[in-house]
């Protein structure tokens, strides 16, 4: 029992070394390069530190047999030691600089990406626009990025309001999104899986609730997903969901949100065409269930104070219909 209690802080510390959001458990090309670089730097610096400490302890403990300033021999020995240390310092620092330079250059290697995604960060969610050579095939999603595993993915990073930062510790980053300019990052997932990303530049009140998920999957399931996302929003079949669609169109929802295939074409809030297919809502704040959708629509300002979605006054029936409709938009 005691041992278990003592081990708890250690296991909590180590839990940061794995999982879906960890720079120490990299699953992407750039993150692996960065992990290797930092391991080499830490190892060499530890060796240097150890050597310095050993020499220091030796200098403190050694016996002073001889009188100071006696003999030429110790002066020559000192000269050799100092020149050796200076040479080692120059070699190590230039070596690390060169290593760092080549690693950084390797991060953005690919010239021709397989997928290009425009990322528009805003307070406090991520807009992902998948670009195609044919603009009619463009589609967008929010807070959830699907990418084919082993392929080069280029993200064009823009900001709508303040500076944000794109960071998926297991795969790539971080790189800032700066209003008025475009930063470009290319990365590749080596293994399929779900990875969590997070805004890494303080951007206001809900900065900590500005997460997103990257789903790296096989080429085939990626194509399937992209094909499904290009479709218009699912047409409601049940009475409840079609009532929800009517509520969505009649109330304030449609002024800020788009559902392709309907009249709703607002661009201020996230595109909801396939919101039912996403894992989370409100930028990783809540798991996507019908209950959490209803809770979010009923009172977004209590769940995520300061976000830009207002409380739209709805009756309980309207709320139920609306959340059923949202859930049905797979």
């Amino acid at each position: 029992m005691k041992a278990a209690r003592a081990a708890l802080p250690i296991s909590m510390l180590l839990s940061g070394c794995g999982g879906i959001q960890s720079a120490l458990d990299p699953q992407g090309h750039s993150a692996i390069l960065l992990r290797d670089l930092i391991l080499v730097i830490v190892a060499i610096c530890s060796l240097v530190w150890l050597a310095v400490m050993i020499v220091l302890v030796w200098a403190l403990l050694r016996r002073r047999d001889r009188e100071p300033g006696d003999g030429q021999g110790s002066d020559r020995g000192m000269r050799i030691w100092v020149s050796g240390a200076v040479a080692a310092t120059v070699l190590i620092i230039s070596g690390l600089t060169i290593g760092s330079f080549y690693t950084t250059r390797g991060l953005n290697g690919a010239k021709n990406p397989d997928v290009t995604i425009r990322v528009r960060a805003q307070q406090w969610w991520w807009q992902f626009i998948y670009e195609d050579t044919d603009p009619a095939r463009n589609f967008q999603t929010a807070n959830e990025l699907h990418i084919p595993v082993g392929k080069e993915v280029r993200v064009r990073l823009e900001s709508v309001d303040v500076i944000h930062s794109f960071w998926v510790p297991s795969l790539a980053g971080k790189l800032d999104l700066i209003p008025g300019r475009e930063n470009v990052l290319t990365f590749r997932a080596e293994r399929s899986g779900v990875y969590r990303g997070q805004c890494a530049e303080f951007c206001g009140l809900q900065h900590s609730h500005m997460a997103f998920f990257i789903i790296a999957e096989s080429e085939e399931s990626y194509r399937q997903w992209a094909g499904a996302q290009r479709q218009s929003g699912a047409e409601p079949v049940e009475a409840e969901t079609s009532a929800g669609k009517a509520v969505f169109a009649a109330r304030q929802c449609a002024a800020c949100h788009t559902i392709r295939g309907t009249a709703a074409a607002g661009t201020t809030g996230p595109d909801l065409t396939h919101i039912g297919s996403r894992r989370t809502i409100a930028a990783g704040l809540l798991e996507n269930t019908r209950g959490s959708l209803a809770a979010w629509i009923a009172d977004p300002q209590t769940l995520k104070p300061g976000n830009n979605m207002p409380i739209v006054p709805l009756s309980s029936d309207e709320l139920r219909q609306l959340s059923a409709y949202m859930e049905s938009l797979k």
Binding site: P310, I311, P313
Partner: peptide, 12 residues
């Protein structure tokens, strides 16, 4: 102080 949430009765 910032008022993020307008109470529904106040909105009404």
């Amino acid at each position: 102080p910032r008022q993020y949430r307008t109470d529904p009765p106040i909105s009404a």
